[in-house]
Design a protein around this nucleic acid. Sequence first.
DNA 1: CGGCGCACTAAGCGCCCGCTTACACTAGTC
DNA 2: GACTAGTGTAAGCGGGCGCTTAGTGCGCCG
Lengths: 203, 203
Amino acid sequence: MTSALSAELWPEVQPEAARRLMLAAVESFAERGYHATTTRDIAGAAGMSPAALYVHFPSKAALLFAISHSGHEQTLALVESVAYRDDSARDRLRMIVEDFVAWHARRHTVARVVQYELQALPKKEYEVVADLRRRIERVVRDVIAQGVEEGSFGVNDLRTAARAVLSLGVDVARWYSDRTGKTPKALGREYAVLVLRMLGATV
Amino acid sequence: MTSALSAELWPEVQPEAARRLMLAAVESFAERGYHATTTRDIAGAAGMSPAALYVHFPSKAALLFAISHSGHEQTLALVESVAYRDDSARDRLRMIVEDFVAWHARRHTVARVVQYELQALPKKEYEVVADLRRRIERVVRDVIAQGVEEGSFGVNDLRTAARAVLSLGVDVARWYSDRTGKTPKALGREYAVLVLRMLGATV
DNA sequence: CGGCGCACTAAGCGCCCGCTTACACTAGTC
DNA sequence: GACTAGTGTAAGCGGGCGCTTAGTGCGCCG
């Protein structure tokens, strides 16, 4: 059921018709891109007339923002929920990569919109998600820094290392498909090994 | 001079007005995306009337294809020119990553179009560049495989390892800017270290 | 020097876009 | 049973899109 998926992705969005529109928009934006998608496409895929979209969202851009904002909040929450635990930096980073990569694989359709349709946001809305992105990067950078202090990582440049870690995760959304033949969880674990080695983690 | 840059990027394209159009298109596509760019934008930025575009290219999509195809051929050539040398797999991979990353940093505007505007290509043209992309991935995978045989790399899954290596390089185009404060060459060297460690290279 | 062909422009065609307007149906409330 | 709020539709407006057409200026060749 698509309605079940949309309820899982955006449980707080009401009514269900608004969620159906978001799901239809996600699928179109991910496949064709924001600008190549028409409001008629979205409304049609949600089983409504074009005008019905404007009952729930003030504009096409507002729909993109709802999707993008929610996605960024989810990934930030995911990263923060691990970053401040009482474990070694090494273990925390491993879990962050596992979860971050698994999310980008499992939710690759949403993730593609979240990561690659940013530029289509109006300036004000863009700034809101840009701030969330900076926070995500900072959390990862801090955990890497703690690992360096603990002596478990060896990196030249914290900023570059954090970018490389996030690049690996983000880019999963670009190429992952359900036919990849590897579960999101398994891919996450595999990437975590690669990342720990990349950061020079002591075995 | 912009004409100097376009001559460097596409020396075989004639006349110069066609190159000017390609350069203007690259800049618009990179900043706003293919679908958000109008033919009037491109022609205007190249100092021409809208109709002049159609003297040199049969359509807006043909312009994108010219840019995308050329970029993919350049990166494939770059990778192949190193892959078949008479060096250790480890050294060849190091050089491939250095060059691939440096190219995506130095040419980040072109690279952004090459890597992120693929989906806007018509089906037939898409297939042409998809083939080039498969060849690039295969070359990298083969070098990694040779490194494993030589005993210098240790990886679980060749396909995943190759994807991770390319992800790191490709994603540079997404975030690199001239204000990054690190030269393309330096970034390439730094990434090469990260990649070799990621693949479990023996020191 | 006449004629040709390349590179270019002014004007505009037909289409489809995002969004609005005017109106209809339904469920809940007193 | 009248009223309201919420959710939807049919129709269409104004504008900008990709691209075409008709015509112009100019350098080059016999």
